[in-house]
Amino acid sequence: MIAPNELTDPTVRAFVTAVNAGDQKAFSAVLAPDATMSDDGSDRDVAQWAEKEIWSSNGHMDVASESDDGLALVVDYRNDTWGEMRTAWRFVTDGGRVTRFETAQA
C-alpha cells in the first residue's frame, strides 16, 4: 500500500487524506466548485454521493498503486455499506483542485 502522504500528485494526496480523515471541510476545499464525478460509468451528484459513500458509511481508501503521474489510482476502498472492494479512480485537476473524478470497480 502507498501511504497518502507519499502520493505523487498533491491534489490527489489532499483528496485521499480528506476522505481517510473523514474531513468534509478539507474534501470540499480540494474540489472545484463545479466538480463532477461518475461511479461505475454513471454521473452522480458529488455531494449526495459523498454523503452516502464516504461520510455516513465511514469510507476509507487504501491506495494499492498509482499511475499517470498520480492521477490514476487503484484503491482497496471500504465503507460500512459495501465492505471492501478494489476500485479504480481517475482524477482531473486544475489549479490544485479536483474538477472531476471517476471511480469504478477495478
Rank of each mutant, 00 (worst) to 15 (best):
A32R: 01
V75S: 05
M85E: 12
M85L: 14
T103S: 13
F27E: 02
R78V: 05
R78I: 02
L31T: 05
Q24W: 00
Q24V: 07
Y77H: 11
T11A: 10
W82S: 02
G59Q: 08
I54S: 04
D80C: 08
V75P: 01
N79L: 11
F15S: 00
M37K: 07
A106V: 00
Q24A: 14
A47E: 15
F27L: 10
A21W: 02
H60I: 09
T103Y: 02
M85N: 13
D40K: 03
V63W: 06
G22D: 02
L71Y: 00
I2S: 06
V30Q: 03
P10F: 04
D34G: 09
V16A: 08
R90M: 04
E66Q: 15
A88R: 14
E102C: 06
S42V: 10
T93K: 09
V19Y: 06
D43Q: 15
A104S: 14
V12P: 03
Y77F: 15
L7N: 01
D34N: 13
T8A: 13
W82Y: 11
P10N: 04
D23L: 02
Q105L: 13
T103H: 03
S67D: 12
L31Q: 09
A26G: 05
M1G: 12
E6G: 04
A88H: 12
F91V: 08
S57R: 11
S56D: 06
R44F: 06
D40P: 02
V46Y: 07
D43T: 14
R44A: 13
D39H: 08
V74Y: 03
D69P: 00
F91L: 11
K25V: 15
A3H: 08
F101G: 09
V74T: 15
E66Y: 06
V16F: 03
Q48V: 05
D43Y: 05
E66T: 07
V98G: 02
E66C: 10
E66V: 06
Q24H: 10
W89M: 07
W49R: 00
R97E: 14
V63Q: 00
L71K: 15
D68S: 13
H60Q: 15
D69T: 02
D40C: 00
D9W: 00
G70N: 07
A26Y: 05
R100T: 10
N79S: 12
